[in-house]
Design a protein around this nucleic acid. Structure first.
Lengths: 107, 107
DNA sequence: ATTTTATTTAGATATTTGTCTAAATATTTA
DNA sequence: TAAATATTTAGACAAATATCTAAATAAAAT
């Protein structure tokens, strides 16, 4: 889970994932969409790969990246499981406020 | 989403969330469960609060933390939406391999 | 009123992360 | 075989992060 959450914790990487929803892309095509050096994008792709969120396939001199939905499902499952295992608390009764005004009896 | 993913990107913070599933806890109770200084835990609680994942309520000298499931639902929705908007690709036909052996006719 | 208890804020520091440029690798084209 | 193209690896550096100790704040107990 650690590697997975780390992968998600960056706007560029999340954008890459969003882009890959519409179909596979080569490293170069991905890099062209960003105002960032190719080595930087390469590094982001590496982190996504480490997290198993994407798969890289070498085709000649190109490397095509595609989404791995299996892992996406795992993350989803983590959240669903989390939600379902939350213990419902008794409804907390509203606390009675300390009165700001009180009856004063002067002798 | 940024603040949210940042909050999730730490094992200690995820553990705190898991702990709160079983019921509300004070800052001190939470800190006692970790081998880490109170200021550090306080900092983690602050990030969880910024992400709206927890709510802090001061009760006398104690501060009680509880889960905010609303935001959990938002994250879940993000993943569900992501999944549902993935375009299905045509099934890639297996590439025909370059034959390693071929019929040779010698004159 | 003073001390104790619960918690946070401030400031310092080591580690991790994101980015860059330059160089290396691998493949295709001329 | 040499040049061009696609991509990664290596190394440097600044910014962000997680952690700590010491000090500040605020409420409760003595």
């Amino acid at each position: 889970m650690n590697t997975l959450f780390k992968a998600f914790n960056d706007a560029t990487r999340r954008e890459i994932l969003e882009m890959l929803k519409d179909g596979d892309m080569t490293a170069g095509e991905i890099a062209d969409k960003f105002n960032m050096s190719k080595p930087s994008i390469s590094h982001h792709l590496d982190l996504l790969k480490q997290a198993d969120l994407v798969v890289a396939v070498k085709q000649g001199q190109f490397i095509t990246y595609s989404l791995n939905m299996t892992v996406m499902d795992e993350v989803l499952a983590w959240f669903v499981q989390f939600k379902s295992s939350v213990k419902k608390e008794e409804i907390a009764l509203p606390k009675v406020e300390k009165p700001r005004i009180r009856l004063q009896i002067n002798k």
